[in-house]
């Protein structure tokens, strides 16, 4: 373990977030309380893990932080410049890797020089430069995930949210991923990694376990 929480202000604070999903017709409504007061925080330069069983609500919490899902209660503070790598790659099948970067560069308001430099750096770091002009439909699952991850990093966010980021990675890319995460952490980026399995515990500042809808620090 690489130390305890920093004394500087957290980049992410989640306090008592609740979320229930409702299913079925109105006369037979079923309710599943996924989050029952989840709290966690991530400081700058921290690499924080969030683990839990399948269906514990890890991805739900991540999607709430990003804004894909609403929540029923609780509060959150997060920086405006955050990067999100979803569990399932959210990409356009018929667009090329280069076109994906082009669209996200516009979203992140990066100037051309910064965008090109960041893109080339990520292509090199993750080892998929040769696929720049390939459409997503022609990429393997692992390469899609590399693009998925790169799009979350291209604008150097203050907070990086990773939901099962290394699914489909080969061993070499898996190791590159952790080196990359370590470099970003040293640069002051706060990183939250969601996984149901964290083998690299020694690299993490802190690990939360999501159980019964609440987060507990387990190491």
């Amino acid at each position: 373990m690489t130390g305890t929480a920093t004394t500087t202000s957290p980049v992410l604070t989640v306090t008592d977030v609740t979320k229930a999903f409702r299913f079925g017709p109105p006369w037979r409504r079923q309710r599943i309380d996924v989050l029952r007061g989840a709290s966690l925080e991530v400081g700058p330069g921290e690499l924080v893990g969030l683990v839990g069983e399948n269906g514990s609500g890890k991805s739900t919490l991540m999607q709430i932080i990003v804004g894909l899902l609403g929540h029923d209660g609780g509060t959150m503070t997060a920086p405006a410049r955050l990067g999100y790598c979803p569990q399932q790659p959210l990409l356009w099948e018929k667009l090329t890797v280069a076109e994906h970067f082009e669209l996200f560069n516009q979203a992140y308001r990066l100037d051309d020089a910064t965008a090109a430099s960041a893109r080339d750096g990520l292509l090199d770091e993750l080892g998929f430069a040769k696929y720049l002009d390939y459409r997503v439909e022609a990429l393997s699952g692992g390469t899609r995930q590399k693009l998925n991850l790169a799009l979350a990093l291209v604008h150097r966010p203050e907070l990086l949210l990773l939901d099962e980021p290394y699914a489909g990675f080969d061993w070499e890319t898996y190791l590159r991923f952790w080196e990359m995460a370590e470099r970003r952490r040293e640069e002051g980026m706060g990183i939250l990694i969601v996984s149901h399995l964290l083998a690299e515990r020694d690299r993490l500042t802190r690990i939360y376990e999501l159980r019964d809808g609440r987060c507990e620090v387990i190491s």
Partner: peptide
């Protein structure tokens, strides 16, 4: 429908 996920991600990214 087919581009919904990616379009939402792009919107949330700042567009």
């Amino acid at each position: 429908a087919s581009s919904r996920g990616a379009d939402r991600r792009l919107a949330l990214a700042g567009l």
